[in-house]
Design a protein around this nucleic acid. Structure first.
Length: 578
RNA sequence: GGGGACGUAGUUCAGCCCGGUUAGAACGCCGGCCUGUCACGCCGGAGGUCGCGGGUUCAAAUCCCGUCGUCCCCGCCA
């Protein structure tokens, strides 16, 4: 080995000993006959001192140094280094490799743009902060594997070359040479495999699984990402999964984010979070919520409220504990439609002021009250947008962490944009048994061509055994107890508009497996990139992915995607038309 | 597919509104001096198709059009 110790190892315990260390030159200070060089490796930094002639080294060089460990003068300790009280008096050195001048210095307060960081990713990854990100990622992976293994879970590797399925995201496809003109798809998730593994009797499966979705990117979305995927047999109720997972999640966030959270996490129903926060992933670091003010405000003579309430609309109020200025409210009104009043010095102002005149206004002193009128899911979702906007703009989070489960989603919902019924989660989610009879009604409604709010309201009565884990307003995981009855599964596939042939072609292997004694089962998939990013306080999952893609799906480091040779295309029977 | 921001030295930026002599700064790089530095200091130097293409103009980093790239958002995506 080229070293006896790592740079981080060298400390007072080695005083007077001869050590050999190797690392990158990250700083050089030449003082004529004396040269200070900081060597760094994964474990830390250490100062080495050359006396006499200037060594032939420079920033970025990989250097091996042999010398005696001695104390630095007491007024020159680097308290922020493990090796900060000592230095190595160089007796001998060797250049293990030279370096071209670096495009940027791999320091934590990196000045380089993200583009440069991705282009020269190896340098970027050399930064101690990135080293720590990926060490934590490794530790979390290891912890998950051990934790689940101790509880009887088996890690199984499902295929990457798999079958394209029409539901969900766009597939990445891979041409087949042996079956020209046919394509594999990269898995969007191991969903169907893990279900059939339950039929196979594995009972408890997990996988730290790479997933692929060919959709547009975001700060928290990459075309390939990693899920902790998990499935258990003989679960009857969502709680069977939740109680297990929340222990795991709490332990991860307590260990690596010092979150101070304890299981069980609060449970909310979908209906409840939509009514109170307008979102199925509310950020509960803020406590502001919507109240139903229909009774309080209807019939007071406000024409907007009265005419809408007559038609079945609800009145929702949100009390913001800040008195906003007229200008701030005007700006909000450009994006959102609402009525409002605020109270200062006991007097109400705003377009609702004259309707609340007789009230005891003291609870609203120094606050702004926003009032919305409407009904249906799109209305509630717009309330969620509003809540997100004003909490971000005008409030500080009241706590660092807010973990919750959202349960009892509707099994099916109306897609208002595309005008069709679709699963709220995915089509393999089991409805609660007592709601199955209500499917008849939905089927009849579909048959007579019902749509919009009407069918959404009908569908919302059939609850699925689905659950989402939400942390600080981010959906971290989603899962369900699955349909294990082939007949019911076929029926649900038909309800979302799939024909017999399509069901057979795409899901035949699942239906067939379900017929061969499928145990009741359920599971969850957790976004591992997001979990690690959150534990590290990173805004973007790119900070915890080694070689991420840009928003245009390009890997700047290696230059993917790229052209392929005419020979490769020929073999695959492919022709590029643009 | 749509909206927004950005693109100037190896890097991070200023200059752009209001066009005009040789396009600046800091860090980095190269050379010299310096024995206790740690953002070392001091002296000197090199380094630019101003993303690319077109247009307007006597004249374009600067104004206009297009295009490419990066980031953020909507759509899309659990």
């Amino acid at each position: 080995m080229h070293r006896s110790h790592t740079c981080g190892d060298v400390d007072e315990s080695l005083l007077g000993e001869r050590v050999v260390v190797a690392g990158w030159v990250v700083a050089m200070r030449e003082l004529g006959g004396l040269t200070f060089v900081v060597l760094r490796d994964r474990y830390g930094s250490v100062q080495v001192v050359f006396e006499g002639e200037r060594p032939d080294i420079a920033h970025g060089y990989v250097v091996k140094v042999a010398g005696k460990v001695r104390m630095r003068p007491p007024d020159q300790y680097r308290e922020d280094w493990k090796s900060g009280k000592v230095e190595i008096a160089v007796e001998d050195y060797e250049i293990l490799n030279r370096s071209v001048p670096l495009p940027f210095q791999p320091e934590d307060d990196v000045k380089a743009s993200e583009e440069a960081r991705l282009r020269f990713r190896v340098l970027d990854l050399r930064r101690p902060k990135m080293q720590e990100n990926f060490r934590v990622r490794h530790e979390i992976n290891l912890f998950i594997r051990n934790w689940l293994s101790e509880r009887g879970f088996v890690e199984l590797e499902t295929p990457m070359l798999t079958k394209s399925t029409p539901e969900g995201a766009r597939d990445f496809i891979v041409p087949s040479r042996l079956q020209p003109g046919k394509f594999y798809a990269l898995p969007q998730s191991p969903q169907l495999y893990k279900q059939v593994l339950m039929v196979a009797g594995f009972d408890r499966y997990f996988q730290i699984a790479r997933c692929f979705r060919d959709e547009d990117l975001r700060a928290d979305r990459q075309p390939e990402f990693t899920q902790l995927d998990l499935e258990m047999s003989f679960v009857s109720d969502p709680e069977d999964v939740l109680t297990l997972i929340e222990d795991l999640i709490a332990e991860i966030f307590n260990r690596w984010a010092n979150a101070g959270v304890s299981a069980p996490f609060p449970r909310y129903t979908y209906d409840e979070v939509m009514e109170r926060f307008g979102s199925d992933k509310p950020d509960l670091r803020y406590s502001v919520e919507y109240e139903d003010w229909t009774e309080r405000l209807a019939g007071l003579g406000n024409r907007i409220i009265d005419s809408n309430v007559e038609r079945g609309a609800k009145v929702k109020a949100l009390v913001l504990p800040v008195a906003l200025s007229r200008g701030q409210i005007d700006r909000l009104q450009r994006e959102f439609q609402f009525l409002w009043f605020k109270v200062s010095g006991g007097k109400a102002s705003g377009n609702l002021a004259r309707f609340v005149r007789g009230w005891d206004l003291s609870p609203y002193e120094g606050k702004t009250v926003f009032v919305f009128v409407g009904s249906g899911r799109p209305f509630l979702e717009s309330l969620g947008d509003f809540r997100r906007t004003i909490t971000a703009a005008f409030l500080k989070p009241e706590r660092d962490w807010a973990f919750l489960w959202v349960k009892d989603f509707p099994l099916l919902q109306w897609n208002y944009e595309e005008g069709r019924i679709e699963p709220a989660h995915h089509i393999f989610t089991s409805p609660y048994e007592e709601h199955v009879p209500l499917l008849d009604e939905i089927e009849r409604a579909i048959a007579r061509g019902a749509e919009g709010d009407e069918i959404d309201r009908l569908a919302s009565k059939v609850l699925g055994k689905q659950y989402d884990l939400v942390i600080n307003g981010v959906e971290i995981g989603s899962g369900s107890v699955r349909v294990h009855d082939a007949q019911l599964q076929t029926r649900l596939l038909r309800m979302i508009g799939l024909g017999e042939e399509e069901i057979n072609d795409r899901f035949g292997f699942l239906i067939e497996s379900l017929r061969m004694g499928a145990p009741p089962h359920g599971g969850i998939a957790l976004g591992l990139d997001r979990i690690v990013a959150m534990c590290r306080g990173e805004e973007s999952i790119r900070e915890v992915i080694l070689f991420p893609k840009t928003t245009a799906g390009v890997a700047l480091f290696e230059g993917a995607p790229s052209d392929v040779s005419p020979e490769q295309l020929e073999e695959l029977g492919l022709k590029v038309i643009r």
